[in-house]
Design a protein around this nucleic acid. Structure first.
Lengths: 337, 337
DNA sequence: CTGTTAGCGCCTTCAG
DNA sequence: CTGAAGGCGCTAACAG
């Protein structure tokens, strides 16, 4: 029950080593024995034991993908991109969900590094600590960070500053003067970049920065977006447009809150989202948003990880920056006030 | 670079065997040496090499999850349920996406069975062939099928017949006489069950079955739902209600098509979906739909797989049936015709 | 061209 | 209570 290389060897009358060489296409095997081995393999329906092979080869043919949650569409799209590339190789992927808990994240990352269950790791929107990066380096494990730019770590990121700038300028060009912002928490790398893009666009458009129009949310959820919009629209001189830098799901919440308040999109208030998740084009009105090339990011990350695994972890840190692209749909229109 | 059990042993002045016993909490070790070993482990920050351990223990501590696509929300929710349980254990999970291609599905399943990279497999909405099941059995690998009921295979399913019945009867009770059906392809187990539930409700409500009101789609996608609705509403005596048994995403497509045609939901046409994906309650109007307890299904599947792995594959086939539950929201209303 | 030997890192007898 | 020996299934060197 579970046939091994020995069984094959015995059947053909050679040693396991010979069979091994046939399997791995090593040259110095005569056609004759090669064929006999191949035949025996077929007859016995033999498959090499992946684990045993990995042990001696000192690799696992597995990569890890770590993220806080895998249910957010943005993460899923990246996952899809990874999988598309992965499928071309002999690699498998195992998922590590940290559930947003710092503790589990710490222990998860640490045990990944030490138990050597994977050859490399892709992190998505995860805040690595210095010593965690060090853990990986010590163990010669490759790592690629997505949406985060650590010094000395390979990464694939999006130009968030430009994406946010384009979105905000788009609203300004439509004549909006009071442009609200729903963003992630202050201090988070991606959020801060988007904040800068927003501010630059506001200033370059000759408008004034007003914190009263800014809201910060934690989980990029629809619910938070809903609440932020309610809050935002209750200030005197409410905004006529809202840039929801905290993702399309939150933007959906904003739109729903506006609807609940009797405001129409885009006639009364324009809304721009961020990410361009599949849902966004399904909505009515279609959501104007900043597209991140998520599948490409995932695919690129995997390619980079692979080459890092092959070439070892002592290479120049690799950094790939993708441009975010403004996709104009029906949720934005000229200012009517 | 990569410290092993030997390093620990050497440091303490014992043999690897002793260290191994400490790690695995075997009894016959004196407190004194146990503590010294434990301390050395901490000092050296030693972690057992998962692969090596698995090799000798003849297990992988990994389960596989196979599905055609992981981007469909329904599948994701199940995945979340699995992960919730998995996290309590030492198991990891690796994903196998078959992309809906019969060929890749075949080879993927076969190699999973033979390379023994996993201790067991959960399949989601996958059509296993007789010989594939046999492959697993031969290798003593556990398997749990979700949304499919194979003889001799553990499974977790939903009572689709009842779910579809409830949904259809709900529409009939609202006074609808012409109730359209958008379902999966004929011959697929789940779709056929839903078809039966629909037909039974129609007949028990004193209505008549009319194939002109049925459409069948392949991928449960929004796009297909959109097209099906356009098609369905163009027949003479168009339906006043549509039961979209082919999932909530397709139901969204139906609603959008209706909107494009100037029909209002639920005033002109009522719509019921299937699954209750997270999106469904976010929509306006909220989607009336048949909820499948997806996370529970996933969690239950994992528990069952675990016990099957422990107890061996020679047990009475386990079968768990969950009830689907009708969730009434705002997309259904009384017939006004 | 093929067999022999050794070892990947760990665990489980079996002695002592 | 602990050390020694053997082996999980495979591959890489070195002989022959």
């Amino acid at each position: 029950l579970g046939i091994t290389i020995k069984d094959v060897a015995k059947r053909v009358g050679v040693t396991p080593a010979t069979v091994s060489m046939v399997i791995n296409n090593k040259p110095r095997i005569s056609e004759a024995t090669r064929n006999r081995v191949l035949e025996a393999i077929r007859e016995l329906d033999y498959y090499p034991h992946a684990g045993a092979r990995n042990l001696v080869l000192k690799r696992t043919s597995t990569i890890g993908v770590a993220a806080s949650f895998f249910t957010y569409p943005f993460i899923l799209e990246i996952l899809t991109g990874i999988e598309l590339e992965l499928r071309q190789t002999e690699y498998n992927m195992v998922l590590f969900g940290t559930r947003g808990l710092a503790k589990t994240e710490d222990s998860v990352i640490h045990s990944i590094a030490r138990e050597r269950k994977v050859d490399g790791l892709i992190t998505i929107t995860l805040d690595l600590k210095e010593n965690q990066v060090e853990d990986f380096r010590k163990n010669n494990l490759s790592i690629v960070a997505l949406e985060r730019d650590y010094k000395g770590v390979d990464c694939v990121v999006v130009n968030n500053e430009k994406g946010a700038f384009d979105a905000t300028r788009h609203l300004a060009q439509l004549g909006h003067k009071r442009i609200g912002l729903v963003n992630g928490l202050v201090g988070h790398p991606g959020s801060d970049e988007r904040q800068r893009g927003y501010e630059r666009a506001i200033l370059e458009s000759g408008l004034i920065l007003d914190k009263a129009y800014w809201r910060h949310i934690d989980n990029f959820s629809r619910k938070e977006g809903f609440e932020a919009a309610q809050d935002l629209m209750s200030v005197s001189q409410a905004p006529t447009a809202i840039f929801v830098a905290a993702g399309d799901l939150a933007a959906l919440g904003v739109i729903q809150a506006l609807g609940r308040m009797g405001k129409r999109v885009p006639e009364d208030v324009s809304v721009v989202g961020y990410d361009d998740i599949p849902l966004s084009e399904m909505l009515e009105p279609g959501l104007t948003t900043v597209r991140q090339p998520m599948q490409q990011i995932g695919a690129q990350a995997f390619k980079q990880l692979l080459s890092s695994i092959k070439e070892g972890t002592n290479h120049q840190p690799f950094k790939m920056v993708y441009d975010a692209e403004l996709i104009v749909r029906q949720s934005t229109g000229p200012c009517t006030h």
